[in-house]
């Protein structure tokens, strides 16, 4: 045995242990992740393609798809703008209470989806704080589209911010300071220096935010009222079909959401690599500054 082989043997496991561990990990993932994935598509096609296409093209399904797209189209940009603003304030400036603010931004992640919906019912619902006033003015929020959008904004609230904050903290403020010294205005600095630096992190946050916005179930279910064709999102439509024992149809609509999840995963892994490069570059230049 060469010394190198001895060193290798000392710092890794014997081959049979390695393969046992790999097999165990893969078996676990196959059982808990692979099997449900397969079950969606097999069940969706269990009654044939005709039933499948009928299920995803019926008008009620289309209404649900449109509502889901509309909800995401409102919620994602709102949280994108918020994420950038919050990250700018938190990462580029030093102020007291920063940690508290970060924790507050993360708050919606620790709230149960059901409670996330309920808090808006208690404000805008008939029994809520603003209920009587809204009724007098003929405004409906709960059991209508605005409520669905609000609940979705709440559950996807932290996604963009929590991606950008660590990235922008690592990047520091030197490049922006240089741009300002050279005479750029604040907005020019933001668009020409900051945005290119954070674009992959931004995209990453948007991908995650969008997936959750389109897939949210619990919070939306509480505020929706389940009115077919009007306040049913795709996930709620899946639930209704499933509870009516239209299993193949339920899985057909679910398969669209699953495809969305798979696209999300693919996009996420493609972007993840670039985010890491950007973060590494930022940390590297920071380390160099410390050395000189």
């Amino acid at each position: 045995m060469t010394p190198q082989q001895i060193a290798e043997r000392a710092t890794t496991e014997p081959r049979w242990i390695r393969w046992t561990l790999i097999a165990l990990a893969l078996a676990f993932l196959a059982l808990f992740v692979g099997l449900p994935l397969a079950a969606v598509f097999v069940s969706a096609l269990s009654k044939g393609w005709a039933v499948y296409f009928a299920a995803i093209t019926e008008p009620v399904a289309w209404a649900a798809i449109k509502l889901t797209l509309l909800t995401a189209a409102i919620a994602v940009p709102l949280n994108l703008v918020f994420g950038v603003a919050a990250a700018w304030a938190i990462a580029k400036f030093e102020f007291r209470g920063k940690q508290v603010l970060i924790t507050l931004i993360d708050l919606p992640f620790s709230v149960s989806p059901v409670v996330s919906g309920l808090i808006y019912v208690l404000i805008f619902g008939l029994q809520g704080w603003l209920g009587p006033w809204l009724q007098d003015h003929d405004i409906t929020i709960i059991f209508a589209v605005p409520g669905i959008v609000l609940a979705t904004v709440f559950v996807t609230f932290p996604f963009v911010a929590r991606e950008l904050i660590p990235l922008m903290i690592a990047q520091g403020t030197e490049e922006e300071e240089a741009a300002l010294t050279l005479g750029a205005s604040g907005w020019q600095t933001f668009w020409r220096v900051t945005v290119p630096n954070i674009k992959w992190g931004l995209l990453y946050g948007v991908i995650l935010c969008n997936a959750r916005a389109m897939g949210e179930f619990g919070a939306v279910s509480v505020v929706s009222g389940h009115i077919r064709g009007l306040t049913n999102t795709m996930t709620l439509h899946v639930e209704i079909l499933y509870n009516e024992y239209q299993t193949a149809a339920a899985f057909a609509v679910a398969s669209l959401l699953t495809l969305l999840a798979l696209v999300t995963l693919a996009a996420k892994s493609a972007v993840e690599w670039r985010v890491r490069q950007q973060l590494k570059a930022a940390r590297h230049s920071h380390d160099e500054d410390l050395l000189t």
Partner: peptide, 10 residues
């Protein structure tokens, strides 16, 4: 990434 309702029925 997978909506929880889809995971539930699967």
């Amino acid at each position: 990434a997978l909506p929880t309702a889809v995971a539930g029925i699967a």
